[in-house]
């Protein structure tokens, strides 16, 4: 791969993307349009995240790539291999070792530190998209803080179901100003956005938008005073490492419907097991 520039993108493109990132950091939660390039991966498979990562990665970075919280899912493997080939950076599965983490649909359970960068892959950046399909209109709504329609949606959920029915991509208000879609992380992960010491970058390649939550920024999940935001919980611990208060994957183990619940974050789980954490239910 030596005919390609470091991390695949040419320096001019990286500079363009970094400028967009700086704008995004300057206005937390605001979607900055950028000249997204055609990448060797399909749109929808992480091109935005890859472009952001490619623009900020340096030869001394240590890169972790996860999908659904796991390092070994096929797309995470594919993206990590891409950067190993084009950037020759040291890969890791350890959250605490990584300087740069690209992720799809989860925020790691291990708390992030100042100096780390988390890059989230975003399919649909616009939080108002399902309520208003036109881009020209949603741009105005953000400019005028016309977010009433999102609260109408929450009101309707409570009216129909008794609670808000949004379980992932749960809308948040960033820095008290911009309504943001935090990528399809489960709402369980939303609290990790609030006041995080790491830099959180969001890349949408197909829709051509970048946004950011700078370190220590207030991020509030939308709710009503009498229907406060709440996260998922499980009534049992991880079957492998015994952890509670983490997001669990449901695994079907036999055709009689037997199931196991295990940590979605494979690195977190593996290290707890190595440290001697006890498992919960065994099949």
């Amino acid at each position: 791969m030596n005919q390609y520039n470091f991390a695949y993108l040419d320096e001019h493109t990286k500079r363009m993307i970094r400028r967009a990132i700086l704008k995004a950091v300057a206005v937390p939660g605001y979607q900055v349009p950028f000249g997204s390039r055609e990448m060797p991966l399909s749109y929808g498979w992480g091109t935005g995240g890859v472009q952001v990562t490619a623009s900020v990665i340096g030869p001394d970075d240590v890169l972790k790539v996860i999908d659904q919280g796991a390092d070994d899912t096929t797309n995470a493997v594919s993206i990590r291999k891409f950067f190993e080939r084009t950037a020759a950076v040291r890969p890791t599965t350890r959250t605490d070792e990584a300087t740069l983490i690209q992720t799809r649909h989860r925020i790691p359970e291990t708390p992030l530190q100042a100096g780390q960068i988390l890059v989230l892959q975003v399919p649909i950046p616009e939080p108002l998209r399902w309520l208003e399909p036109r881009e020209a209109e949603t741009r105005k709504m953000h400019a005028l803080e016309e977010y009433g329609v999102m609260y109408v949606r929450l009101y309707e959920d409570i009216t129909r179901h008794g609670k808000v029915a949004q379980t992932y991509e749960y809308p948040v208000l960033v820095n008290g100003r911009y309504l943001m879609r935090p990528s399809p992380i489960p709402k369980f992960d939303n609290p990790k956005l609030d006041g995080n010491p790491a830099l959180l970058l969001f890349g949408a390649g197909r829709e051509k938008r970048i946004y950011a939550v700078p370190p220590h920024t207030r991020v509030r999940s939308l709710d009503f005073d009498d229907h406060p935001f709440e996260v998922e919980h499980w009534d049992r611990p991880c079957a492998l490492c015994g952890a509670r208060g983490v997001f669990l994957d449901e695994i079907i183990v036999d055709d009689k419907g037997g199931r196991l619940f295990v940590c979605s974050d494979t690195d977190f789980c593996a290290r707890r097991q190595a440290d001697g954490g006890a498992g919960g239910d065994r099949p």
Partner: peptide
């Protein structure tokens, strides 16, 4: 692509 985390939610 896997969507099982969101599906779990």
């Amino acid at each position: 692509l896997p969507h099982y985390v969101d599906f779990q939610a």
